[in-house]
Amino acid sequence: MRHLPRDHTQTMDQQPTLIILVCYFGRLPSLFNVFLKSCGYNPSICWRIITDDRTPYDFPSNVQPVYIEFGDVQKRFQRHFDFRISLNYPYKLCDFRPAFGLAFDDLVEGFDFWGHSDIDMINGDIRKFLTREIFELHDKVLGFGHMAFYRNTDEVNSAFAANCRFGRKSSSYRLDQLGVLGQKWHSEWANSAAAYERSTQPVHQIIFSNDKYCHFDEWNVRAYGINDLLLDIGKRVYDGREFANLHIPVGHFELSRLTSVASQRPGTPCVFLFKQGQLLRIIAENEELTFDEFLYLHIQKRPMKNNLVGELPDSYLIIPNCFIPVPKELTFKRVKQLGKRCRFYPEYVKFKIRNIKAKLLEKFS
């Protein structure tokens, strides 16, 4: 059994202060308690759950709910802009994430960095991966919507509204860092950047007044976003991909095509182990088990059953579509069987049908 460790020698008094804002409106998902448990294992990081769901939960001491109606959140954003914003449904909040530092200035005050995250995820040991040195050297840490941090300064908090030559610096970076997908769609992305360059409106006004979700908060292989803008105005972006972002079309565990090729492991049987704050992937290959550690697991639209009886344990196994207790013996044969390749995944078919219906409804409405 081979274990790939990571160094973790920093002391907390050297660390920047961090707060993560999670916006969720409507009933919180059934596995919200799993997310909360993983937050509790990162006690030096604060979370604020901005929601209208007042269901009682056992919140860890570093996680606090902020109860607010969606209409009041709309007003928080609108007061910062002299044009009419389009924030008509909760999911559109994703585009507004780069402006969280302004809209929620009362919540982020006093923190060195503020961040945002999704809720369909399990956190690992965040400080182990995002070190003091990374925060010192960068203005934005991580490039995707599921988790990212911004330096809490007036300049960075308002950077989404900056003017620049769109694509001047970001174009070559994308070609180098976004792999085959970035190269495939680069001309479409370049058209997006050129449209912003020609526009008489600033990019944030175009995004924030558009009713559609534009993926402004993260890398988008087809469209210009906040990471591109920050690069183009000379800000420093840390684009580490130490997370496990699941590939939606397959039923087994395979990482998305925007992670490193070595991490994807297409078709290789694997499961994940949450072990008292650590998030480990266990790979069954060549008659042995290999363990590697991740920053977090983004489940990403995948329905998950919970077979954990009673209070959520400190350690559990995550297999495709289910949380289960850790077996007494975690053998090569057992992991290979639990993480075996799924050739047909009906949930993905349902997901595609929902998307097609939504697009047709939008087109003909």
Rank of each mutant, 00 (worst) to 15 (best):
G71Y: 00
Y91G: 04
D82A: 10
E155M: 12
F100H: 13
N88Y: 09
K75M: 11
S172D: 13
R127C: 10
G71H: 02
A99P: 01
I122S: 05
E69T: 11
Q64C: 14
L93E: 02
C164I: 01
V73L: 08
P90T: 03
Y91M: 14
V108Q: 04
N88K: 12
L93D: 02
L102D: 00
F113C: 04
R132V: 09
D176Q: 15
S171F: 13
V180S: 14
K75Q: 13
H80Y: 15
I68C: 11
E155G: 00
D95T: 08
R168H: 12
A148C: 15
R168Q: 13
D82Y: 07
Y91N: 13
Y89R: 12
Y67T: 08
L93G: 01
S172L: 13
D112K: 04
V63L: 09
G182Q: 03
A162L: 09
K92A: 10
L102S: 10
L181T: 10
R151S: 00
G110I: 05
W114A: 02
V66Q: 11
G71T: 11
A99T: 01
F111T: 06
Y173H: 15
K140M: 14
S170T: 06
R127D: 13
F160D: 00
H80V: 07
I85N: 02
K184L: 13
Y173W: 15
I134K: 09
A162G: 10
D72H: 09
F129C: 06
R165S: 14
I126K: 07
R165N: 13
E155P: 01
F149R: 03
Y91A: 12
G145D: 05
F104K: 01
Q177C: 13
V180P: 08
H138M: 02
F111V: 09
R76C: 04
I68N: 06
F81H: 05
L137V: 02
F83Q: 05
I126S: 01
D106A: 11
K169V: 12
L87V: 07
